[in-house]
Every structure is written in structure tokens, then in C-alpha cells.
Design a protein around this nucleic acid. Structure first.
Lengths: 200, 200, 200, 200
DNA sequence: GTTTAATCGAGACGGTACGTCTTGTCTTTTG
DNA sequence: CAAAAGACAAGACGTACCGTCTCGATTAAAC
């Protein structure tokens, strides 16, 4: 049962989100304009403003609708190996068009708290939860030490990804960097005692 | 020796940079406009365009001119302690007005590579170098293991800072977080062998 | 006999015309919108467009439906006196809300010939005819000279009314102006011969 | 001496007024848009809005700048003949493109009092004054009766012109109508006494 | 009674123009 | 020369209406 009135056109909605995502990829959010989206999508500006409060929200939804944000959840005997799989997947997606769009949106969120909030709820939090689950599993099966602070590890892992994406310390597709990063997070920086063993 | 004609007014330059920094603090870079800077500084738009190529560059220079980016370099017997001092200082500055401006600059840099490049050269690289120096010292005096990959540790440490600044996983002024973060980077995540040792 | 189907709702029709007339009075035709009429009347835009081709036609019909265009036709022994009665009545109605609406309609008609045509047929011509009848009577009973050109006199009489309404040479409610105007139309501008006579 | 700053471009001003007048002739004021003027004149909308408060004012000034509103002032021995000359000139100009523009503007003035006020000051009043002068001359040299109410005669004469322009009782170029109109205004409608004479 | 058909409300749609704001350039006077 | 003032072309902003187009619900005549 729907209320009265012409129903919303999914065709228009899709055309808008497609056009928006394309334009985000091409120009970044800086030069992303509602007029541009209207022109490319063949819809009216009114229709866009009817459904989205501004460019931030539209870009956000375009990202969520299109980006391959759903990395498959691995589940093997080794939590460490699963961590690698997940983080590699994210690194690969960040290295491409999606990454540019994510960067635009995250940074736009600096002056648009609601947009950043949505990004948190829809993207960041689910992914963090996935990592948390894997790490907790690793703790339970003895791969990680039992007093490990999960949240901090998650933050350190994602931190490197987002920093490479946004600050561009180094390229996201540098070969082997993610392995090295993970290894060092696991091993730590302190000297190992004599009886110790090395990881990797 | 200068050629003939009216010399560049340092007064105008300062007024512009002051106004720019204020406006960045107040509104973020999204609503930062050259016109606004001209209006508040009491200068003409022309004067701004004569000396800066665009809003990114102006914002960048305003940041460099004002921000307390020069955290004092500590030098004690303990490299670990010096690391804490430096990173705490950065966290504090990121938590305030400077943080908002830095976020703006990074945002601007996404579509303005030269700006991001300047930020790297003038801000990021010097700070990283400082961390590198401290860590190398720690390696030499046995505080860190000898095969530690310095660059990766630097990246992990800054990563958390920038991620809290930009993605806002958690607040930058959460008490104790930086200590916990550093500790875990140092200790790693793997289980410690029975012959055990302490960190912290 | 009507075909099948729901019959037209007179309630909707009346609500539309009422709302239209109110909005014309309040805002003039410049700011008269179909959407406004729909909103105030509580009907759907569709319903309006089903029955009227555009705002001109709707405004026209709203005027015809509401305006007190039916000044009573006087019939006394004196044609001159009857003329005064009729013209005074029109002046009074032009000076009020009806006048504003009439002005709007004439404006709309400039770019909408059919609307102006309807106005002629429904409003202008009947009133002119009434004047013509009175003047012809005056010619027959000797109040006016026998070679008087009736049409020209009618035009001169209405001309002053419409001009005051539209061009606002002077206010329509200036006391005594209509009497003075009629008198001078009757007496003419040429000098009277010595054997003199009176007209008021 | 002018203050600092780039001076107003007369080229832009002229281009705007030219384009505006053309568009008024072509479409009438109803479909007259600022965007259209900007497009045809090759100027920016901003430039138009900088100098004119709205379409009414722009149309007004375009009319004043272009229309041949300056009928030459005749001065012969016969005031009646001069009246004919002036009124014929206005009728001719009203019958052409200028007339359409005048109609648009006058009617637009219904909801834009300032525009109508300017029209009064710049067009209506000077022309009325010219007629007044001629009529006063006619009174002095005995062509008109000494107690003639000048203002009323002026109003009656212009009334017919504007009414034909706006209400379109009859076409403005109907042969002989203006002569007939003038004659009847002069002669009046009352029967002539026996000793009388006929005009024309 | 059930079709059948035209009505009504609601409201989304592609558009046009609005009047404002900002960009980056250009042109002038003043110091 | 540089600085101030400010006009200029360009173009996006977000809003208001336009006239068209589905919808679901109503209402009568025709079957």
C-alpha cells in the first residue's frame, strides 16, 4: 500500500546515483556539482533536491550504492591470514576509483558532520566490526595474546590505510607494504628476549 | 636593490594571512573564499591573486604561517619517552583549531596536488624525520629490536593521529589513548613466550 | 444525459474560482500562480489544468464569476443623468478590488489574445452597448445633437476610466472628476457664441 | 575625477539595453527574462543585476533609451492643428513596436509601482505638459473657450490613445479616428443653439 | 451488482528562470 | 610599479512554478 501521488521513479534515482558516481570519479568532490549530475543523468535539478539535501549527501549515497564496499568475509583456520585477506581487499579498492571517491567524501565530511556520520554508520563501523570479530577469534584460539586491546589494533590497521589514502605518505599499491605493516603490528617494536621466536 | 615602483606591502600580506587563518578556523575550507579573505583583511582580491595561485595555496601558507607546528624536540635518555612527548604534542595541536585547519588543507590537497606536496615538504616530512631520528636512536641504544622497520612504525604512529583527526574514529583528546596506542605498537599482538618480560 | 464517469465537482470549481479571485486581489496577476490557487483551494493542480488552459483564462473566469460587473441599468427621463449613474458605478468598482483584478486581466491579455477577446465579449462590449443605448436615447429626445458620433463618445468616456485605472494619471476616486469629465465631453472645448446656453 | 575601480562599461550597458529592447519587441514583457537579455547581449547576469533592480526597471530603461518617444513639438498659428500633429505622432508610434513595448511596461507597472512612477516622470508627464502648453495657447488666442478645464481635456485626449493601445477597443491605425475624436472633444455633444456654427 | 469511465487528491517528473554568490580577469585611480 | 576598488564574463547555487505524468480512491451511469 502506498500513499497517493505518482510514485518515485527508480529510474531517475538510479540515473542520478550513476551520474553522481561517475562525476565523483572524474573530478573529485571539489568540482562535483548538482548541475553536472542533473545534466549527465538527464534529470531535473528539482528532482535531486527533492531527495537529497545537498551535494555531500548525494555523493555519500552514490558511493554507498556503487562502491564495492562489501569485501567478502573470509573465514579460515588462521585469523592472521583472514586479517591479511580483508585488509588487502580494502587496500585494493582504495587504490582505485573507489578510493578517490572515498577520499573526497571523507574529507568533505569535515564540514558536514551528518555526512561523516552516515559514512561511519554505513561503512566504517561494519568494517571495523568485521576486523574485531577476526581479532577476537585470534585471541580465543591463541594466535594473539589474551590481553590484546582489540580496538587499538583495529585503529592501527585502518589508520595506515586511510592515511595512505588521504595523506599519501606512500602509494596504496606499494608491493608488500601491507604485509610488512601487519607483521610489525603483530610483532611489536621491542626487542625479543632470547628464548623468543620470530614471527614470519 | 629593488626595481622601481611601490614595494610589496608586508602589511597587506600579513593581513591576508591573518584573515585567511581566522576564516579557516571559523568555517573550514569548504566555506573558505578568496572574497571573504579580501573582505576581512581589507585588501583587494587582485592583491591576493597576484601572490597566490588559488585558495589551496593561500590556505596552506596561512596554516604554515600561524600554526604552532614547531613542537620542541625532546632529547632524553629514553627514546620511548621522547616518542610519547612528540606524539602527545601533535595530538594536542590536532585537537584544537590547528587540527581543523590541517584537515581543511588535506582536503584541499585531494584536488590540488601541489598544495598537498607543499604540505608534505613543509609539515609532514620534517615531523616524520624527527620521529625517525628518535626511533633510530632507540634502535641504537637497544630500546627497540635491531631489525625494526622504522618507516612502518612512523606510519603506524602518524596513521592513528591523522585517522582520528580526519575519520574521527574516536576523539583526539581521549585520555590515555596515545599511551595505549604506543604501547601496543611496541609490544605487538602476538603471544609472549613463557620467559616473559614487561613493557609498561 | 451524461456519459459514465464521475461528474465534475462544482465544489472544486467554486473553491478554485474563489481562491483565484482572492489571490488576484492580494497579489495581482504578476504573482498569481496556479500552484497558489491549488494550495489555497485545497484542490490538485491537475484539476485546474483539466478545466482551464492557463492562468490567463482562470483569472478571467474568476473575475467574471465574482466581480460586481452588473451595474443596474438606470432609466430616467434624462439620458445625461443616466450616463452619470452608469459611469459613476464603474468608477466606484474600478477604484476597489475589482479594479485591481481588471487591470491584471488586461495585462494578461497583452500576451494572451484569447483572454482579451473573452474580456471584450463578456465585459467590455455589454457595457459599451449599455452606454450606446443611453446615448442614442439622448439623441432621439434632443439632449444631444443629432450628428453626434456615438462610438467616439463612448470611447472617450471609457477611455478616461481605463486610463485612470491603468496609467494612474489621477486617482479614480477623486471627488467630482467624473462630473467634470462628462460635462466637458458634452460641452466641448470651442468657444460658445454670444447667444449662449448652459450646460450645468 | 572618478574614484578608483574599473569604470562602468558603456559597451556592456548598450548591449544590454539593445538586447532588452529587441526581446521586448519580440516577446512582450511576459516572456521577457533577464537570462535572455544576458544571453543575447553577451554579458553576465551579474552585470545586469548590478545596475538594474529587476526586469521592470530594465524594460523601462530599454524603452526610454530606444523608443522614439520624442515627437517634435509643433508650433504653428493654430493650436488645434498642433494638437492634431502631436496626437497623430503618438498614435503612429503606439501602433508599432514601441506601442507593444509601452503596453508591456505600463501593465507590468500594475504590480511594480516604482516602474510606473518612472514612466510617469519620464514619459507621461513631459508629454502631458506639451499638450497643456498647446491648449493654454489655444485658450489665450481664443481658439478654445476661456473656462476650459485643461487637465480634463488632456486626459480625454490621452485616454483614447492608451485605451486603444491597451484595451484594443479598436485599432490604433484606423484611418481618421483621431481627427474624429479630436473634433468631437472640441465640439461637445450638446445641441448647438440656432445662432451656432458647426466645427469642421 | 458489477463493470466502466471520468473525476478527484496527491505528488513526482523534466524544465525554465529566478536572484545570489564566488571565481578569476581586467581596468582604472591613487600612493 | 603595487595596492585599493570595483566592474566584468562565467557559471553553480538552491528556490519557485510551470505544465505533464502517474497513481489510488471516488462516484455515477451503463450493463
Amino acid at each position: 500500500m502506498r500513499g497517493p501521488g505518482r510514485p518515485r521513479s527508480d529510474q531517475a534515482r538510479d540515473a542520478i546515483l550513476d551520474a553522481a558516481f561517475q562525476l565523483l570519479e572524474e573530478n573529485g568532490l571539489e568540482r562535483f556539482t548538482i548541475e553536472g549530475v542533473a545534466a549527465r543523468s538527464g534529470t531535473a535539478k528539482t528532482t535531486i533536491y527533492r531527495w537529497w539535501p545537498g551535494k555531500g549527501a548525494l555523493a555519500m549515497e552514490a558511493l554507498l550504492a556503487h562502491a564495492e564496499l562489501t569485501v567478502p568475509i573470509p573465514y579460515t583456520a588462521s585469523a592472521v591470514s583472514d586479517l591479511r585477506t580483508v585488509l588487502d581487499g580494502i587496500a585494493r579498492s582504495f587504490a582505485g576509483a573507489t578510493g578517490r571517491v572515498v577520499a573526497s567524501i571523507v574529507l568533505a565530511g569535515q564540514n558536514d558532520p551528518p555526512t561523516l556520520k552516515v559514512y561511519h554508520e554505513k561503512v566504517v563501523e561494519p568494517r571495523r566490526q568485521r576486523l574485531r570479530d577476526i581479532i577476537e577469534r585470534g585471541k580465543r584460539n591463541g594466535e594473539f595474546r589474551p590481553d590484546l586491546h582489540v580496538e587499538t589494533l583495529v585503529e592501527a590497521m585502518y589508520g595506515a590505510l586511510y592515511t595512505r589514502l588521504l595523506i599519501r605518505f606512500s602509494p596504496l599499491d606499494e608491493p608488500g607494504w601491507m604485509d610488512r605493516h601487519i607483521n610489525q603490528l603483530l610483532e611489536g617494536a621491542l626487542p625479543r628476549p632470547l628464548c623468543g621466536q620470530a614471527a614470519k
